[in-house]
Deep mutational scan, measured.
Amino acid sequence: NKFNKEMRNAYWEIALLPNLNNQQKRAFIRSLYDDPSQSANLLAEAKKLNDAQA
């Protein structure tokens, strides 16, 4: 399933972002599970926040 693969990839990328705190990571990951079709958008948002907090 395409969404499962995208979701799994996004999950690990988000989990490993160095500048997000655990609460932020959990919120993004919860959103991934709520709507796997938004994986790419959620990952992009997480990366933006990660960069902003660098």
Rank of each mutant, 00 (worst) to 15 (best):
N1E: 12
N1L: 06
N1D: 15
N1T: 08
K2Y: 06
K2A: 14
K2L: 14
K2R: 10
K2T: 07
F3I: 06
F3V: 09
F3Y: 14
F3T: 07
N4T: 06
N4W: 10
N4Q: 05
N4F: 09
N4G: 06
N4S: 04
K5F: 03
K5H: 07
E6R: 01
E6P: 06
E6G: 02
E6T: 05
E6H: 04
M7P: 02
M7C: 01
R8I: 05
R8C: 08
R8V: 07
N9E: 11
N9G: 05
A10H: 05
A10D: 04
A10T: 12
A10Y: 10
A10P: 02
Y11A: 12
Y11M: 13
Y11L: 15
Y11C: 05
W12A: 13
W12I: 11
W12H: 11
E13D: 07
E13P: 01
I14M: 05
I14D: 00
A15K: 15
A15D: 04
L16C: 04
L16K: 15
L17T: 01
L17F: 10
P18W: 04
P18E: 09
P18R: 09
N19A: 13
N19K: 08
N19Q: 05
L20F: 01
L20E: 00
L20D: 00
N21M: 08
N21A: 07
N21W: 07
N22E: 15
N22I: 09
N22R: 12
N22W: 03
N22D: 14
Q23Y: 13
Q23K: 07
Q23T: 11
Q23R: 08
Q23G: 13
Q23N: 10
Q24H: 03
K25E: 00
K25C: 01
K25F: 05
K25T: 03
R26I: 09
R26M: 09
R26C: 04
A27D: 12
A27S: 12
A27N: 14
F28T: 01
F28I: 07
F28R: 01
F28V: 03
F28D: 00
I29R: 04
I29D: 00
R30G: 07
R30T: 12
R30V: 09
R30Q: 10
R30M: 08
R30F: 10
S31C: 01
S31P: 02
S31E: 14
S31I: 07
S31K: 09
S31W: 11
S31N: 11
S31M: 10
S31A: 14
L32Y: 02
L32M: 07
L32V: 06
L32D: 00
L32C: 01
L32R: 00
Y33S: 03
Y33M: 07
Y33I: 06
Y33P: 01
Y33H: 08
D34V: 15
D34F: 15
D34R: 11
D34T: 09
D34M: 14
D35Q: 10
D35K: 13
D35N: 11
D35I: 06
P36C: 02
P36E: 03
P36Q: 06
P36D: 03
P36N: 05
P36S: 05
S37D: 09
S37E: 05
S37Y: 09
S37I: 07
S37A: 07
S37G: 11
Q38F: 05
Q38K: 12
S39L: 14
S39H: 15
S39E: 02
A40L: 11
A40N: 10
N41S: 13
N41Q: 15
N41L: 13
N41P: 15
L42C: 02
L42W: 10
L42G: 01
L42I: 12
L43C: 02
L43H: 02
A44Y: 11
A44R: 11
A44F: 11
A44W: 11
A44V: 14
E45W: 10
E45A: 07
A46I: 02
A46K: 00
A46V: 02
A46D: 00
A46W: 01
K47W: 09
K47S: 06
K47R: 13
K47M: 06
K47I: 12
K48G: 08
K48H: 13
K48C: 02
L49G: 01
L49K: 07
L49A: 06
L49T: 14
N50P: 01
N50E: 02
N50T: 01
N50R: 01
N50F: 01
N50Q: 02
D51Q: 13
D51K: 12
D51M: 12
D51Y: 11
A52G: 10
A52F: 11
Q53G: 07
Q53I: 12
Q53S: 14
Q53K: 03
Q53E: 08
Q53T: 07
A54H: 13
A54F: 11
A54Q: 15
